[in-house]
Amino acid sequence: MLLYILRRLVLLVPILLGLTLLLFIVARILPGDPVGLAAGPNATPELIAQMKREFGLDQPLPLQYWNYLTGLVSGDWGMSVFTRRPVFADILEYLPATIELVFASLFIAVVVGIPLGLLTAVYKNGPLDYATRTVALGGIAMPRFFLGLLLQMAFAAWLDILPLSGRYPLIESPPDHVTGLYTIDALIAGDWSAFQIALSHLALPAIAMALSPLATIMRMMRSSTIEVLQQDYVMTERALGLSNRLILFKYVLKNAMTSTLTVIGLYVSWLLGGTVLVETVFDWPGLGLYATQAILTQDFMPVIGVTLVIAIIYLVAMLVVDLLYGVFNPKVRYA
């Protein structure tokens, strides 16, 4: 098992190498003039040349790639032309906000989607089933950014019970930095009011991101539960007197989880990419907002950095999903 994890981690290295090369090529082939943009319209050719030297953009491409690679390993992920700060430092600053948002929405989607899927399968074709399926159809088609705007309109503007945007009030200082996730940090510090403030900011963007995965997880869970309920062993369990609750939440749930797990894994990537949209709507200071600003100014080092980080998170998530398969399906063996 440990050996399997180690081998999978080693296999990540060539994938990441290929990824950096691909991104590097894409970034250099594409037209665009980041230095010109950063220097402003009145920059002299001398200034531009000097800035190019500063960022190492005047060297031959293979050398640039080699420099980039060696830099990556030593934590030097290049400079952002736009923020004029090291990309690595920027990413470290913005990463926790994105992690918090992505995990909060994944948590909502799983914790609501799985029981709903189970229940709608049991009460198939009942009113609850029809209601949730209709909402699910809409939930999958709903654009995240539009849902975000609607939520802002309803809960921030009209009802005025949740903040419109941002991650924490600007005038107040967030809880002491431990994990960088404000809700967790507030709990660690035992600061209940800070936790409430952080949670109230997190709620709307997390819900906006969660609806579509929630709907998909629910649909997947519903169909696999219906399939499992028809299995012979469920009849045996009923025939020997086990309670419906025990059968459903223990014996059926675990069997129905396997196919749902695949969907959850795929949604990690979808959620990470979607931060670009939702963080823009809610001014959430995470990687998505950072990447959007970098893209709009054609500042490629941050884009490569963010893409790399997201790809790493995605690959690790897929590994976790593969390991979880073994938990839900004992026939899976790691060799």
Binding site: I15, G18, L19, L22, L23, V26, A27, L30, P31, G32, S269, W270, L272, G273, G274, V276, L277, A291, T292, I295, L296, Q298, F300, V303, V306, T307, I310, A311, Y314, L315
Partner: peptide, 24 residues
């Protein structure tokens, strides 16, 4: 297939945004 797999690991929305921004 290796190239295909590589592209599948990149979040498609961010890649599309980057390419679109670069192309104009």
């Amino acid at each position: 297939m290796r190239i295909t797999d590589l592209l599948l690991t990149i979040p498609s929305l961010i890649l599309a945004m980057a390419v679109a921004a670069a192309l104009g």
